[in-house]
Design a protein around this nucleic acid. Structure first.
Lengths: 219, 219
DNA sequence: TGCAAAGCAGGCACAGCTGCTTTTTTTAGA
DNA sequence: TCTAAAAAAAGCAGCTGTGCCTGCTTTGCA
């Protein structure tokens, strides 16, 4: 529920200065609707791209009227921004989930990251990240999101591979290398710029490169 | 000059079935205008992104009227497609130019490719490639373009480093690795996803990785 | 020198999107 | 059961982009 509405709600009836804490009443259904709208936005970003994602299309995809949609999000921009944040949280959750049932070797982590990049969520995220290049408002939202993702990602990697903590320089390099290579491939993949066979070769080689960067093997 | 117009032109006056070969008259000024429009489109793609590039903006950027623009390109889509092809040629030309004055070592080639990715042309190309994910027409144009770029790029690399021809598997791997990593970095760079320091580290390491893949060093 | 076609500019009408406002329906508390 | 607020739907200008069409200017050829 938008902050603006909450303020209005607060002074209903008696007008007493009650705290803004929502009674968490059944109105959490509102949260469900918001989630539905955001999910619809993600699907639209994948289906139509950022350029062709419009408020009517999102509303239709969510099975709601445009009026209802503007009830939850002041305008289209706020919806996009909320979607960007939500995509970030989805990514983090997916990583945490994957990390739980993960063998602690480079290969597994590599494949886990690659799997994430094949999901629709990554495409949607990429659409928004790309849009943020010329949309200053979106960029303002993206910046902290990216920072936090980086931090969590580092934490997770160190948690799974404590030996890397010995050589942070090599660690950062390995991370940057993996991230950019895999993301580059993911991007090229969706536009037919790279075939699955090549992808497999690169993934295998990346594994070797990472292993060679590992502190204990480097001596 | 659009093909449609040429056909119309052909049967002027006498209506004889003359060949379609344009007398290459002074009407090559038309080509200049076309180029101006395409360059304006590229600038718009960089400034406003694909989503916000409109025909009025392009016309304004080119210093022409919208009517004039639609005289040269039937509609906005054709302009975009022509721009994509032109960007391809520009990339090829830039590579050929760079290759001429190039030391024959991996480092130089790596840096040369990276330099290309920092240019506005790459951003514009990326915008169109991204758009082609959901624009089937654009994808149809992109596909052969990408294929040709790949071929020329292979040819150039082999020309500069003939020793690689001994081991095509390693060669293709090295190429894919470089391309995807650098392009991934270039993309992340424009959205503040990576800092210059890290970029430098990755570039240095990529150089080592490539050298290790070289046939003569591999034994 | 004249004329036809190309280059170019401006205007028009249609369509789609946006944000807002006004109703109707649902829901939950008294 | 009644009522008021939240949720949802529907309707309404306004704006912008698009494609097309018409008319003016320039150019090149006969």
């Amino acid at each position: 529920m938008p902050a603006q509405k909450m303020i209005k709600t607060d002074k209903t009836r008696d007008g007493s200065a009650r705290p803004l804490i929502e009674p968490t009443a059944q109105a959490l259904k509102s949260a469900k609707t918001r989630a539905r709208l955001i999910d619809a936005t993600i699907r639209c970003l994948v289906k139509y791209s950022y350029a062709n994602t419009t408020t009517p299309k999102v509303a239709e995809e969510a099975g709601l009227s445009r009026g209802a949609m503007l009830h939850h999000f002041e305008n289209g921009r706020q919806l996009m921004q909320a979607t960007l944040v939500e995509l970030h949280h989805k990514r983090l959750r997916a990583f945490r989930r994957a990390a739980g049932t993960m063998d602690h070797d480079a290969r597994t982590l590599l494949r886990a990251y690659w799997d994430q990049l094949l999901r629709p969520n990554f495409i949607a995220f990429q659409e928004l990240a790309n849009a943020s290049r010329t949309d200053k408002e979106l960029a303002t939202v993206l910046e902290p999101v990216r920072r936090e993702f980086e931090e969590r990602w580092h934490e997770l990697a160190i948690e799974l591979f404590p030996e890397w903590a010995d050589d942070m320089a090599a660690f950062k390099l390995a991370l940057a290398l993996t991230q950019n290579t895999l993301e580059g491939m993911a991007l090229n993949r969706v536009t037919q710029g790279i075939d699955d066979e090549t992808i497999a070769l690169v993934l295998d080689h990346m594994e070797k490169v990472i292993l060679e960067l590992r502190p204990d093997r480097k001596r």
